[in-house]
């Protein structure tokens, strides 16, 4: 009897959650699909975004993402490699760095926005620009990216390290040719997490890359990313909901596409390293 009641409650709760989540998803997909067309993607917005498309917004989004990844990936991989392969184990500086990363990962995104505004926009004189926004995002995604890559490298079997050393390979060669390819899934997961967070981020970009919805000509121009566009359309533009849903669907599809792209790029790159 009690078992019956309990399992009914469990199934009802699961159904409720599934229903709510499916509701959100279908809403976004159906409302958005009604709005999306080729013209929507390639034309400039008109009438504060109610009409027209999102071309400059897409371009700004990609700019910010590219800048963020270009800054975060090499830096993040480098730090992860040092922490897992070179640093003295769990002592002194390396341990402090670990704590530092966890602390950085805990800062809310809006606070990264405040920092980015104070440091990149004002102190470094970049103003409201795609560069300032991208660098702010890089700071934001770095800690998690480093942590995922580091733990992926640490999980690589010590047998391979020993094997490489016993063959007289340098640590650096072991990392490049053996350990990084072996840690591929974790690096990919870190990359996907980073892309997801960077593409979805709004709060950190409000006062770093700005609102301007013109087509950016250089990374020093201000530009409006998709997430900010959605926010602006739904909050500040009456009658902008349709375009907002269209942009929301584009944003979700973009994230999924970028993840797929990252996956195939990383796979290809490593495949070349693995066979040759």
């Amino acid at each position: 009897m009690i078992d019956r009641v309990f399992s009914t409650v469990v199934f009802a709760a699961a159904a409720l959650v599934v229903a709510a989540l499916v509701w959100v998803l279908t809403d976004v997909v159906s409302e958005g699909a009604a709005r999306i067309s080729w013209a929507f993607l390639v034309t400039e917005p008109r009438d504060a975004g109610r009409a027209g498309g999102i071309a400059p917004v897409l371009v700004s989004t990609l700019w910010v993402l590219v800048i963020a990844l270009a800054a975060a990936l090499p830096l993040g991989l480098g730090v992860a490699i040092w922490l897992s392969e070179f640093a003295p184990k769990q002592r002194g500086f390396a341990a402090y760095t670990g704590i530092t990363l966890d602390v950085l990962a805990g800062i809310p995104s809006i606070v990264y926005g405040l920092f980015g505004n104070a440091f990149f926009s004002v102190y470094m004189g970049l103003g409201y620009s795609l560069l300032a926004g991208g660098l702010t995002l890089a700071c934001m995604i770095l800690p998690v990216f480093i942590r995922t890559c580091e733990s992926g490298l640490r999980q690589v079997s010590d047998d391979w390290r020993q094997g490489a050393w016993a063959l007289g390979m340098t640590r650096a060669a072991a990392v490049c040719h053996v350990l990084l390819p072996a840690a591929r899934p974790a690096i990919l997961a870190g990359l996907v997490l980073g892309i997801g967070r960077a593409t979805a981020e709004t709060a950190a970009l409000l006062f770093t890359s700005g609102y301007v919805d013109r087509m950016p000509e250089s990374p020093l121009d201000s530009g409006r990313v998709l997430a900010v566009h959605i926010f602006d359309l739904s909050m500040n533009v009456t009658g902008g909901d349709g375009a907002a849903y269209g942009s929301a669907l584009v944003l979700i599809v973009l994230i999924v596409l970028l993840n797929g792209l990252a996956q195939s790029l990383v796979d290809n790159w490593f495949k070349r390293r693995i066979s040759q």
């Binding site: 830096l75 070179f86 390396a94 950085l104 405040l114 104070a118 440091f119 640590r171 990392v175």
Partner: peptide, 26 residues
């Protein structure tokens, strides 16, 4: 390896400096 170690340690020091910068600016 020495060069790798030194340059990567420098990068890592940069990460710590980043945290300090963020705190400092806030």
């Amino acid at each position: 390896d020495g060069r790798w170690n030194a340059s990567l340690a420098l990068l890592t020091a940069g990460m710590v400096a980043l945290l300090l910068t963020i705190l400092l600016f806030l």
